[in-house]
């Protein structure tokens, strides 16, 4: 059995607390600036948004336990669109734990200060993939702490954008499964998000895009521990995303299956 993961240090707790507090204060600004850009500059819409949020609330229930949001990944702004989909700015201001923490690859953020500030305000925890073990351990400890204290965390289980335009059930990462294993009681919200005109992966969805969503809430487990268990659970998550994708295409692009 894997040893108990190390707990989070005081300094890391303080940094997370500060980021949470600053992000909360700026939520009305950060959320609605992004929303205005998406809605009126890019012309994006989310079909059935109210019904999606209602059904999501119903399925999640009052349980404030750990929730890992695992979406498919087609564009560079999937996480921003999903923050919009999962709640309103007002909702996040009232319940800031519902505003998902994101885990972007640190190398993708570059050195530009504006992007770094925006990421900080939008509750990003940069992740250095295959970085030094002590950095990885510290990042994982932060994420575990957030999940265990009732925050929502978003991770793309494929590890990268779907290069073929479809969920990759072969080349996926195992980080999602590891988190589910290490934080008892973690539920997984699988969300499939795709615009009607999205044929392959891209930086941005086309202008005027209408997104359609499908989701499911899982409580994946594995009889195995450690890396093997992480792999089992990650596979289950990715396979559920693939089946949501099939449902999406059956509904919106019957000829495109």
């Amino acid at each position: 059995m894997s040893p108990t993961p190390p707990a989070l240090g005081h300094r890391d707790r303080l940094e997370l607390f500060l980021q949470r507090a600053v992000a909360w204060v700026f939520t009305p600004v950060s959320y609605y600036l992004a929303w205005l850009w998406m809605r009126f500059i890019r012309g994006y819409r989310i079909s059935g948004l109210r019904a999606f949020r209602d059904e999501l609330r119903r399925q999640l229930g009052p349980n404030r336990g750990p929730l890992l949001v695992c979406p498919n990944h087609l564009t560079a702004i999937d996480s921003v669109v999903l923050v919009w989909a999962l709640g309103s700015g007002f909702h996040y201001f009232r319940k800031d734990r519902d505003f998902v923490w994101n885990l972007p690859e640190r190398r993708n953020l570059g050195e530009g200060l504006p992007l770094r500030v925006a990421c900080y305000l939008c509750k990003c925890i940069p992740v250095l993939r295959q970085g030094p073990p002590e950095v990885t351990a510290r990042t994982m400890a932060r994420i575990r702490h957030l999940l265990a204290t009732g925050h929502r965390v978003m991770i793309f289980p494929e590890g990268t954008r779907s290069r073929s335009g479809r969920v990759d059930t072969q080349e996926f990462a195992y980080g999602a499964g590891r988190l589910v294993q290490e934080v008892p009681g973690t539920r997984v919200l699988c969300v499939y998000l795709r615009g009607l005109g999205q044929e392959a992966c891209s930086d941005l969805p086309r202008r005027g895009e209408t997104f359609h969503l499908r989701f499911d809430v899982l409580e994946p487990t594995s009889p195995n521990k450690g890396l093997r268990g992480s792999r089992d659970i990650s596979r289950r998550i990715v396979e559920r995303l693939a089946s949501l994708e099939e449902e999406w295409f059956a509904t919106h692009h019957p000829a495109g299956q």
Partner: peptide, 27 residues
């Protein structure tokens, strides 16, 4: 591929009949 590194670690476990914990695998 970074995700395949986990498969390699698991293959080590099978081949050598050992158990490698996450911390050791990260190193």
């Amino acid at each position: 591929n970074s995700a395949r590194l986990v498969d390699i670690i698991l293959a080590f476990e099978d081949e050598f009949g050992i158990s490698i914990d996450d911390e050791a695998a990260d190193k």
